[in-house]
């Protein structure tokens, strides 16, 4: 698609694009990936520790400990987001903080805090899911389609 677009441009524009591409700061992909790996891994280790905590002190099994663990991680992310620490870690870690559920929490919570000045209904209420909404939408819709296909396949196709 990008190539097609380029063909329609004049020579000058093409030159400019080449020029812009040259000047574009190269993203240090490897370095970013290593950072994402360690920070993301660390968040998951913390999550594992939390779920062991729930299993050890409460009647949660490996299966059921997932939900309270996720809630706890979102709670931690609220505190870190509120004090502005999460954003600082995010600058360093990139996807390492965005991909775990804490990143989802951060997106919701920071939007809520940011729009607080516009009031609770119009500000917080309607802006909370500005960033996270697409995740919920596509997740839910994809899940619906997949589950529908599978259910139909199992019920009438004799699959599974």
């Amino acid at each position: 698609m990008a190539d097609e677009k380029r063909k329609n441009l004049t020579a000058v524009q093409q030159d400019y694009q080449a020029f812009a591409k040259e000047r574009e700061t190269k993203r240090p992909v490897l370095k970013n990936c290593i950072r994402a790996f360690f920070v993301g891994g660390l968040i998951c280790v913390i999550g594992q520790a939390v779920s062991y905590f729930y299993m050890y002190f409460f009647d949660f099994t490996e299966q059921t400990a997932g939900n309270p663990t996720v809630a706890t991680m979102v709670f931690l992310s609220m505190i870190l987001t509120g004090f502005g620490i999460y954003d600082r870690i995010a600058q360093f870690a990139g996807a390492g903080t965005a991909v775990p559920v804490t990143g989802f929490g951060n997106a919701v919570i920071s939007a809520a805090i940011e729009h607080r000045t516009e009031g609770f209904v119009l500000g917080v209420g309607s802006n909370m899911f500005k960033l996270a909404g697409s995740v919920i939408l596509f997740g839910t819709f994809a899940a619906f389609v997949i589950a529908l296909i599978k259910t139909i396949a199992v019920k009438w196709g004799g699959l599974g």
Partner: peptide, 22 residues
């Protein structure tokens, strides 16, 4: 099954908005 993540995000998001200033 999923309710935990979303409801936690909603509840804590609102508490966060009550507690913290932008």
């Amino acid at each position: 099954v999923t309710s935990a993540g979303i409801s936690a995000a909603i509840v804590f998001g609102f508490i966060g908005a009550l507690l913290f200033r932008p």
